[in-house]
Amino acid sequence: MKKKNVFDSNFFQKHGHTMIIYGFLFALMLFVSLFNESFFTLGNLKNLLRSSMPLLMVGLGQTLIILTGGIDLSLGGIVALGNVVCVTLMDPDSPAGFLMPVAVTLLMGLACGACNGLMITKGRLAPIIVTIATTAVFDGLALLIMPKPGGSVHRAFARAMTRGLGGAAPLLLFLVVLFLIRRLTNHMPYGKALRAIGGSENAAYSTGIRVERVKLLAYTLAGLLCAIAGIFLSAQINSADATIGKNYAMNAITATVVGGTAMTGAVGDPLGTVAGVFIIAIINNMLNLFGVSSFYQFVCQGLILIVALSFSALRKKHS
């Protein structure tokens, strides 16, 4: 009997915040469905997932990094660069014209992430300042490659990405990525190392964890996820825009924080981030629905971030 109780309290300790945030998400969905009868239709849910896809990818990447106690403000830059690179290289006419661009974009994402990671680990620089600087570099590169929005995407590829398998393709992609990331963070030694570094870098180091390698991999994986976001965006909007990444870094932070990951690292769950992304998406959706100008989205997102941070700060104070 006693054993069971201990287990329960531990379960709640571990997953309590994730459960609360999902509770909130479902409440929000119900609330929206009161005003929008078509909310729970398959088409709308597919739409919701499709429009949230890029942020889901970036958010999962940001979560990896925040778990180490770091931060990456340049993720939006990588998304934009991914979008631009992917579209520029695309050959809409050749049947396999999407293969090379996708591969190159993925490699580019890895390289950008590794670049951040190397500066932070080998250069021993603060993540904020490195990624502020690389934001300028990535944004600049994207703009250099494509000064004006445009380009076109391989048709079949775009359709397969966004609507393939009867519209289940994005869902499948999302589930596979989520499964892999969550397995990494919650069920594999790497995740423990990630969290240990976030909790106490010194403790991790003296326990024999290769701190630099673990961190580098986190930044690199985040870069890769941003490249996937960039590719997906290309398929979704059928063109490229060098400024498309602007708000991703911040929204990804918001989603991560709303999802219950502590800014100080160690504590958090990618599943929570997913809920965070959907909450942001639904609120934006709702604002559109009520005909509120899109300008309010900025205020809203900023407020969500601050409120979520305040909550987690107050929670910490009380515990």
């Binding site: 069920h187 594999m188 423990k192 969290r195 240990a196 976030g198 909790g199 106490s200 326990t207």
Partner: peptide, 25 residues
């Protein structure tokens, strides 16, 4: 050198976790 946010078991086996065939703990 314990990580305060993690459980006792996680700390004891930190960087030493026994794994299953597919790399899971």
């Amino acid at each position: 050198t314990l990580v305060g946010e993690m459980t006792v078991a996680e700390n004891i086996f930190l960087n030493q976790e026994p794994t299953k065939p597919f790399g899971g703990i």
